[in-house]
Design a protein around this nucleic acid. Structure first.
Lengths: 68, 68
DNA sequence: GAATAATGCAATTTATATGTTACAATAATT
DNA sequence: AATTATTGTAACATATAAATTGCATTATTC
């Protein structure tokens, strides 16, 4: 689950801790999502977007892999 | 978790069953998501988007509710 | 209007996202 | 380089997304 959370977070000058608090989630959850080790729920994705002032597509869109 | 899955699915003439098979998920999961009773994972959201040829924003974006 | 397709929904099970706690590792600041 | 802030990660607990099975209800089609 690659994404642009870290880039977007840094752009608005938030630490993982601050973003987590703003959203009401633990820092570990943010860390794991940034590292691509979690497949977050839509609700969490939306809350992250609101916190960093970006859209779902900007932060979470991944082109479909052409493969079989 | 309101969304536009049903609208998008009908636009590409797929039944819940067909969409579910295309994505590799059960029909019930699609049904519950359409009804807004599930908070789907990002991976599932993306797979739905690929199947209906729409973006995350088009199918799943929800404006932030202004006030607390 | 009977038969079939499509959808809604309930109960139970399974997989996994997230919480909690804690500590290690790295970056930033003095 | 020592202190502090920030981030990575591990083990275990909890909540919930998703699977499974089954049946009821609502459209469609004949």
């Amino acid at each position: 689950m690659k994404n642009k959370v870290k880039i977007a977070r840094v752009q608005v000058s938030l630490t993982q801790q601050q973003l987590a608090e703003k959203i009401g989630v633990t820092r570990q959850t943010i860390s794991l999502i940034e590292k691509g080790k979690y497949n977050p729920t839509l609700k969490l994705c939306l809350e992250i977007c609101y916190a960093v002032n970006k859209s779902l597509d900007e932060v979470f869109w991944i082109e479909k892999e052409s493969g079989q």
